[in-house]
Design a protein around this nucleic acid. Sequence first.
RNA 1: GCCCCCAUCGUCUAGAGGCCUAGGACACAUCCCUUUCACGGAUGCGACGCGGGUUCGAAUCCCGCUGGGGGUACCA
Length: 484
Amino acid sequence: MTSKVRARIAPSPTGHLHLGTARTALYNFLFARKEKGDFILRLEDTDQVRSDEKYTDDILDGLRWLGMNWDEGPDIGGAYAPYRQTEKTDHYEQVAHKLISEGKAYFCYATPEELEALREEQKNRNESQRYDNRGRHYSAEEVDKYVKEGRIPVIRFKVEDDRIVSWHDAIKGDIQIHTADIGGDMVIVKSSGIAIYNFAVVVDDIDMKMTHVIRGEDHIHNTAKQILIYEALGVQHPIFAHVPLIVDTDRAKLSKRKHGEAVHILKYRTDGYMPEAMMNYLAQMSWTPPGEKEIFSVEEGCAMFDLSKVSKSHAIFDIKKLNWFNAHYLKSLPLSVVTDRALPFLSDYNLSQYSREKLEAIVSLLRDGIDTLGEIKNVSAFFFNEKIEIPDELGNDLLKKDSSRKVLSKVNESLSQFPWDDAKGCKAIIDGIGKELGLKGKDLYWPVRAALCGCTSGPDLGATLSILGEARVRSRIESLLQPC
RNA sequence: GCCCCCAUCGUCUAGAGGCCUAGGACACAUCCCUUUCACGGAUGCGACGCGGGUUCGAAUCCCGCUGGGGGUACCA
């Protein structure tokens, strides 16, 4: 009888939601949903120095934004609460003491300085750096001496020296790690009394009955350590799956230090990326759905996801591909939705000068030509600003040409005949003027466009005219026809 | 240093020994559509890191090399 699948994401609130965390969360989420299991959110906040509540909010918010929801978590509770490690300190310590009483762990009084010296020595001798397990053999006198000195011990877990830990990774396949390479007996509880990550995760994953642990491949060595703890605790370990890391175009791990805000989901939100695009891009970075289907929603992802099809090799974050996804969703999502999302990016403008209908028309016109909503402010400026800037190269050159002035004069004379509510009709009049003057293509369109938009490329001309309306068009053209 | 993981077009990838003269997508180039631009459509460019095996047959399996990445904490 297989038990219900339980997968989780366990971020630590030491920074904004990271791209890699988001993707790992997504894979856990997709997997849990696909298997009709539970997806759990848990906070690994044992790093007291770096943890911050504001990051917790950012992380939960970011995950929701991407379309994920969880069945249990710090915000909604659940059968296995609490879902924050800092609320389980005593529990971890109890488990650690149980291991001590069974002879599987012990107090170690070595100071950080002593350990540093040990590492230094080993390095000089060109040996691999590892704890020498000295704490296993303290005499009563030694312990007494250290206690009198006021040393506060850590708790170390005994790592068997000559064994191979192996598991079948759901993504990577069989992995074997020799215990000699783990680094000696490992700390499981710091002198502060706080459990160390490798210990707390295991206790939590046991407590919460996790069946699958899907996480970044930077945890592969931790997995070996953790399997040892599962064994000591007499519990069968969950299925592990290590997802390849996301690296940059130089193939280095994405890091705050090197990439700044670009490693955070928040950055993409504020730059005007659609959550649908972000989710879709993240999901397909290391996983291809059957049938080479590139575009898919969270729901479709949930239905199609297959852990065994996740790639083993690293994924390179390619902003161009993300842009393509985003441009796709910008064009295909319902206009009202895109408009709602676009308006905050236009908040510097006086939006009340247009009806909602016209605003939607503007978004509809502009969304074809941009990759992100962040770009909409610039490309829509001529719709909102009272006066537009005409760049010198257009003002001094194109708009000074005889043919250009002819076109503009003619358009100006005909303004009263434009069917202002009909974009195609407006365009037809321009075409008519072109025919009359014997001008076409650039000679015809560019002057009009330049006069209205301040540039020679842009959205559909008829629609632009229609949205701007007679008054704005008239004032822009007339201001250019003034003798200079 | 030691340990682990990985290796197909510039990028993401399909490929589970013959279906592969290696397929798709992004990007790029050209063309078409549009009497401008964008969108859209079509075409093109373009890869199995190297060397050994195994096999009738290898991108696919094995070994070595090289390259890349990750890990080696009283961080997570």
